[in-house]
Design a protein around this nucleic acid. Structure first.
Lengths: 209, 209
DNA sequence: GCCGACCAACCGACCGTTCGGGTGGGAGAC
DNA sequence: GTCTCCCACCCGAACGGTCGGTTGGTCGGC
């Protein structure tokens, strides 16, 4: 159970990250509010007070976890912007990148997506998330303006529906086996861009009039 | 605040539904666990104990609300099955019907989608929801088999992504103005079936080889 | 022997729920 | 029309239990 990353002084045991991993898993299982420090300590094999040696409050644990998820998501936008090129290509990078973040950091992103904004920590996280959403919506608008995406749908509705699809990963994706993150990303992009309809049949005739 | 549906005996005040509406709104705002009977009573302008005249427990309130949402969703499947016809057409009915249920019963469905399964009540609700998902997945499979939907994507992934899109409504849709539920349903079906890509340009050439 | 990791015992506040009693207005008797 | 009774509706106070957090001190590897 304890961590061992060498170069640790004093009595061996948990470090912050080790505790945080267990805590986030418990938060996701029971919900943040419903997870008491008592049962958390039990899961860790520690006493309650031992946890307060590593974190000053329950809120701080939540803060750290949410920051981890938000930083990763913001990093995806940063990378896409840096890549340059057509808005449609940058959007493609964002969608695939977001799927990878969801898969790689499933616990902390799951926690993020369930935040409702009752405390200061939650409200700050929610504001960062909204800023992320605004930047994605702007990217969709740009892609519509350059003619890469259909323009008969509202950009904010499109980005919300698309990320609704991606975010639903936290409800059903469970890690197992190899590099299926790429496969999921392909599926998401396929549905979002080309839709589910059988590409043959009357589709071509519809387009040709 | 109190209800008035006539033919009510005794001292006028809240009935079960009136309390439930306020309770579900509070549950969605703070989270079920984080909503204490004390603040709920405050919102109702009642004492805590008065609530127990209408409900035997906090759990029972949750149970009623979840049943309302689940019954509506199951009704959509029932209606689509009764309509008959091609699987693709029945799936279309299910998608549009689900959007309407989400919009019409936004509070109770929001509550449903946040249930994690910590109590018996929540576990029962979760099982009903999973049964719903299985029936939708079966419908997608049928539509793939009849050649209406592309078959290169897994049916369960498709239904999860599609309902991820629909369920995201509870995160951002807020009632206001007219009959926009139809408009949202159109948008959802448009994205799900035809995708976001600009239908002109190289799409036709791709299809024609 | 320093110091990081840990513990048992405890705190005030608040939780969901219960209890015994109070109150006001529609319905039926007059 | 008005009287009276019933009952849906409501209250304050208190219950045992659990919450997040604190205190003061112990343990043990480098």
């Amino acid at each position: 159970m304890p961590e061992n990353t060498s170069l640790r002084r004093g009595r061996p045991g948990y470090d912050q990250q080790g505790i945080l991993d267990v805590a986030v898993a418990a938060f996701n299982e029971y919900g943040y509010d419903a997870t008491s420090m008592g049962v958390l300590a039990e899961r860790l094999g520690l006493s309650k007070s031992a946890i307060y040696h590593h974190f000053t409050s329950k809120d701080e644990m939540l803060d750290r976890a949410l920051d981890s998820a938000l930083s990763a998501l913001e990093g995806v936008l940063e990378q896409a912007d840096a890549a340059g090129g057509r808005a449609a290509d940058r959007l493609d990078l964002v969608l695939r990148g977001a799927v990878h973040v969801l898969v790689d950091r499933l616990p902390s992103v799951t926690l993020l997506l369930r935040v409702r904004g009752n405390t200061d920590v939650e409200r700050r996280a929610l504001e960062r998330r909204r800023a992320f959403d605004r930047r994605v919506t702007a990217l969709v608008s740009e892609a519509q303006a350059e003619g890469s995406l259909r323009s008969d749908l509202d950009a904010s509705v499109v980005s919300r529906l698309t990320f609704g699809m991606i975010n639903s990963l936290v409800e059903w994706y469970r890690p197992g086996g190899g590099e299926d993150a790429d496969r999921i990303a392909d599926d998401v992009v396929a549905v979002a861009l080309d839709g589910l309809r059988m590409p043959t049949s009357n589709r071509v005739e519809d387009l040709l009039g």
